[in-house]
Computed example of a mutant assay.
Amino acid sequence: MVSRWQRSFQRSGWSTRRWVATLLFCVLMVAALAACGADSTSTTAQGAQSPTPTPTSTSMKTLQARKCGSIQTNPRGLPVDSARAKQSATCFWQAYQKCQPAMLEFDHTSVDALAIHTFNIRTSDQHCSVTDDVQHSVLPAKPVGSKTYTCTAVSSKPDGLHFSACGDAGDVTVPM
């Protein structure tokens, strides 16, 4: 006895082989997309340093934060655009070393989730701090709400920028 679903499947003209071939094609496409951005470049390691705030004057307090750009990763954790990632990370690292206001966005994508980190360098009364504003989402939903944490340190290493002890977000590595 053939079920109604099986009869419908047989009438549609789709064979089992065709379904398997379509499924295999989809799996290969996902694997190819995940392989995008697999290029990894290394840079010279620079250890964690405490930034030295530059002297503040009335004109410096009104400066806007430098927008260093954004870094996006594929589900394998590698930058989608390694040249852009390196440029953005270098911009943020240089601003951090001088304790100059700057912003860097890091979109960490996994297979079914997205975490958006917005790092900001802030200065006040000769004190420099780095904050991490984090939004989470389970795909395909859009991120809602955010939490802001203060990180204890930033260091530049061959694999990227390392943000230490950023509250509940913990240690965050931004690849470049």
Rank of each mutant, 00 (worst) to 15 (best):
residue 22 T to Y: 06
residue 89 A to P: 09
residue 123 T to I: 08
residue 127 H to N: 10
residue 46 Q to P: 00
residue 126 Q to S: 15
residue 135 Q to M: 05
residue 103 M to A: 12
residue 101 P to L: 07
residue 52 T to H: 02
residue 136 H to D: 11
residue 60 M to I: 10
residue 74 N to H: 09
residue 100 Q to F: 03
residue 2 V to Q: 14
residue 110 S to N: 06
residue 173 T to E: 15
residue 73 T to W: 12
residue 111 V to N: 12
residue 75 P to H: 06
residue 165 A to T: 06
residue 33 L to H: 08
residue 87 Q to Y: 05
residue 146 S to K: 05
residue 64 Q to W: 01
residue 20 V to F: 01
residue 30 V to Q: 05
residue 13 G to Y: 10
residue 125 D to W: 03
residue 163 F to C: 03
residue 141 A to P: 02
residue 50 S to E: 02
residue 89 A to F: 08
residue 113 A to V: 00
residue 116 I to Y: 02
residue 172 V to P: 13
residue 131 T to L: 02
residue 160 G to Y: 04
residue 70 S to M: 14
residue 162 H to M: 04
residue 63 L to V: 09
residue 69 G to V: 04
residue 76 R to Y: 12
residue 46 Q to H: 03
residue 70 S to P: 09
residue 59 S to Q: 14
residue 174 V to G: 12
residue 145 G to V: 00
residue 121 I to Q: 05
residue 89 A to K: 08
residue 107 D to P: 00
residue 101 P to C: 06
residue 63 L to G: 04
residue 95 A to V: 05
residue 67 K to Y: 14
residue 121 I to A: 02
residue 58 T to Q: 10
residue 135 Q to L: 01
residue 51 P to E: 02
residue 92 F to H: 10
residue 40 S to Q: 11
residue 168 D to S: 15
residue 121 I to P: 02
residue 118 T to S: 06
residue 120 N to T: 10
residue 81 D to G: 08
residue 47 G to P: 03
residue 82 S to W: 10
residue 80 V to R: 15
residue 26 C to F: 05
residue 108 H to D: 14
residue 86 K to G: 13
residue 102 A to V: 02
residue 149 Y to F: 15
residue 176 M to A: 15
residue 48 A to M: 06
residue 144 V to M: 13
residue 97 Q to S: 04
residue 170 G to N: 13
residue 13 G to N: 11
residue 51 P to H: 01
residue 51 P to V: 01
residue 80 V to C: 13
residue 137 S to K: 12
residue 17 R to P: 04
residue 156 S to L: 13
residue 91 C to F: 08
residue 127 H to V: 05
residue 78 L to K: 15
residue 114 L to K: 13
residue 4 R to K: 14
residue 150 T to P: 14
residue 85 A to E: 01
residue 42 S to D: 01
residue 82 S to R: 15
residue 62 T to W: 06
residue 134 V to R: 07
residue 142 K to G: 00
residue 114 L to M: 10
residue 92 F to D: 08
residue 175 P to T: 08
residue 119 F to R: 08
residue 115 A to M: 05
residue 76 R to M: 14
residue 36 C to F: 08
residue 98 K to S: 10
residue 133 D to P: 02
residue 121 I to S: 03
residue 143 P to S: 01
residue 165 A to V: 02
residue 36 C to I: 03
residue 76 R to S: 14
residue 31 A to I: 09
residue 37 G to R: 00
residue 136 H to M: 07
residue 38 A to V: 00
